[in-house]
Design a protein around this nucleic acid. Structure first.
Length: 542
DNA sequence: CTGGAAAGCGCC
DNA sequence: AAAGGGCGCTTTCCAG
């Protein structure tokens, strides 16, 4: 059997190309031969058939049929969608029409010959830019080989315990109704609590609660969580609204939404991973988004418990521990930070000890909590104001903390300064592997825009490098699973976490395999630590 | 009736 | 005046 290979892929989503090419190969949907023009035509006509394009299940079956019959997909060589994304990941769309509009300033009419023609022209032009920008390796070794890996993950899907969610739905509805009743009584009137406009009117005009200093950007008074939290101590109604919001959010977004998306044929949940949707190189997840399943609150964790493994299997979740802070240590080579990670010390405790000037053994849990906010805040460019809001302290004190941080971590200060200097010079920043993000506003005279640009410039190399590392790990783990004919399946990626569904007999093998691949993904100045949990569901992991 | 903006909030 | 990087989904509300 010859591997199927297409030279140029018509952009829709990159994986749609693989998936559809597989459908074509299988002859399930179209009877075309595998020479390239026919393949392109077949792909295009599939794309124009919305019923096929929307029926994700069809190509998932195709993948399955293809792989179970021993066919291997060699894939495409030139994918204009991925090219367009790598050349400038800040555009929101990389479809054929939008990429062609940007590249050639042409509006497409949508005919097949035109699409084929433009596809080839785009591939050629963008390939040139990829090489000029030094992105060929990122394309060949990361984004392109990731495509079939993501296709397999989407095809595998995750198992959901419907009964858990159904029971929760009934219970939550009852609690929401009760909570609404309490709120109405408290306010002596009925209104739509889900409407921030009506809620703000009732709370701040009718009931006369103190209006937040921070008004919303627009005309309405903000009823955001931090505003209500500030009021909750003195005003029961604010607390009730917060509780109502939490119940309503979890019920509508997860408890009721997820079961409706279960595949009728596989009975499982199949997300779509977006490979061209973020400015930093991260993946996204839609339909449903499985990268924002609750975990923070007890109620949220109940939802996580509904993500289960097939009989005879367990879930294995592997997390990179503090990967962005470790990358900050790597890039900055800051001696304190690097040595701490090399020794395996607790970095939040170290920061607490440095910033608050106490010996590590004297660091209290509250010190550590505050230091944790400082550590992560640095990565995001947190201001004294932001830190003060977050910790509930004076801005002056927050400023002292931040100054103390940079006084101790001199390498971090230098890293930030160098990164900004380089961004101002090149109007772009790069990850460790050379993935590029333009930072056009870095020299803007508008201080607001410039501030955003500066925070972006510092954060992107960290967030983007973490994204590159886990993508490489995924490609290698997938290769191992295939090569060794293991039955375990990679099912989810949540930025710094991978989730697998593993036959009980393979647990030990997988623990070792996943840890090895993730920890040794690339040599850095600090070790990478992977935390692995195994259990019957996504909540109860040990 | 549909589409999109705005507000809000779930995750890393 | 704003004040923390990156996402996607739900709801409300309003314009066309």
């Amino acid at each position: 059997m010859l591997p199927l290979q297409a030279d140029v892929a018509t952009p829709t989503t990159p994986r749609a190309t693989h998936k559809i090419a597989m459908s074509v190969a299988r002859g399930a949907a179209l009877s075309v031969s595998l020479d390239e023009p026919s393949l392109l035509a077949g792909i295009k006509s599939l794309l124009s058939d919305s019923s096929l394009l929307k029926s994700i299940h069809d190509y998932k079956l195709a993948i399955h049929a293809l792989e179970s019959s021993g066919l291997k997909l060699a894939g495409v060589r030139h994918d204009p969608m991925l090219y367009s994304y790598l050349v400038n990941p800040t555009y929101s769309s990389h479809t054929l029409a939008d990429a062609a509009l940007r590249q050639f300033n042409v509006k497409l009419s949508g005919t097949l010959p035109e699409a084929a023609d433009i596809t080839r022209q785009l591939a050629s032009a963008l390939r040139g830019e990829i090489e000029e920008l030094g992105l060929a390796k990122v394309y060949e070794e990361i984004d392109l080989p990731l495509v079939p890996v993501l296709a397999r993950m989407e095809h595998a899907g995750v198992k959901i315990d419907r009964k858990v969610l159904a029971a929760m739905s009934t219970r939550l509805q009852r609690e929401i109704d009760a909570k609404a009743k309490e709120i109405y009584e408290c306010c002596a009137m009925e209104f739509n609590i889900n409407s921030p406009k009506q809620l703000g009117d009732v709370l701040f005009n009718k009931l006369g609660l103190p209006k937040p200093v921070k008004y919303g950007k627009g005309k309405t008074i903000s009823t955001a969580v931090d505003v209500l939290e500030a009021l909750a101590e003195d005003h029961q109604v604010a607390k009730l609204v917060l509780e109502y919001r939490q119940l309503a959010k979890l019920k509508s977004t997860y408890v009721d939404a997820l079961p409706a998306l279960l595949s009728p044929t596989t009975g499982r949940l199949h997300t779509t991973f977006g490979q061209t949707g973020t400015a930093t190189g991260r993946l996204s997840s839609t339909n449903p988004n499985l990268q924002n399943i609750p975990i923070r609150t007890e109620l949220g964790r109940e939802i996580r418990a509904a993500f289960i493994a097939e009989a005879g299997h367990v879930l294995l979740a592997a997390d990179y521990s503090q990967i962005e802070l470790r990358l900050l240590a790597h890039f900055s080579k800051d001696p304190l930070l690097v040595e701490a990670y090399r020794r395996g010390d607790d970095v939040h405790t170290l920061t607490a000890s440095q910033v608050f000037g106490v010996p590590p053994l004297m660091v209290t849990p509250d010190h550590r909590r505050q230091a944790k906010v400082v550590n992560f805040g640095i990565v995001y460019g947190l201001s004294p104001f932001g830190l003060s809001q977050n910790l509930g302290i004076e801005t002056g004190q927050a400023r002292d903390f931040i100054n103390a941080y940079f006084e101790k971590y001199k390498g971090v200060r230098a890293f930030i300064d160098q990164t900004l200097e380089q961004a101002r010079r090149d109007q772009k920043v790069k990850t460790l592997f050379g993935r590029v993000r333009p930072i056009p506003d870095i020299n803007s005279k508008n201080a607001n825009l410039r501030g955003f640009a500066e925070r972006t410039a510092v954060n992107t190399p960290l967030q983007g490098t973490a994204a590159d590392l886990i993508k490489i790990a995924m490609i290698r783990i997938d290769a191992e699973l295939q090569e060794r004919r293991l039955k375990s399946r990679m099912t989810l990626q949540v930025h710094d976490e991978l989730v697998f569904e593993v036959p009980e007999k393979e647990v030990d093998t997988m623990r070792t395999l996943v840890r090895e691949q993730m920890e040794n993904v690339h040599p850095l100045n600090v070790p990478l630590l992977v935390e692995i949990g195994v259990g019957p569901n996504w909540r109860d992991l040990e």
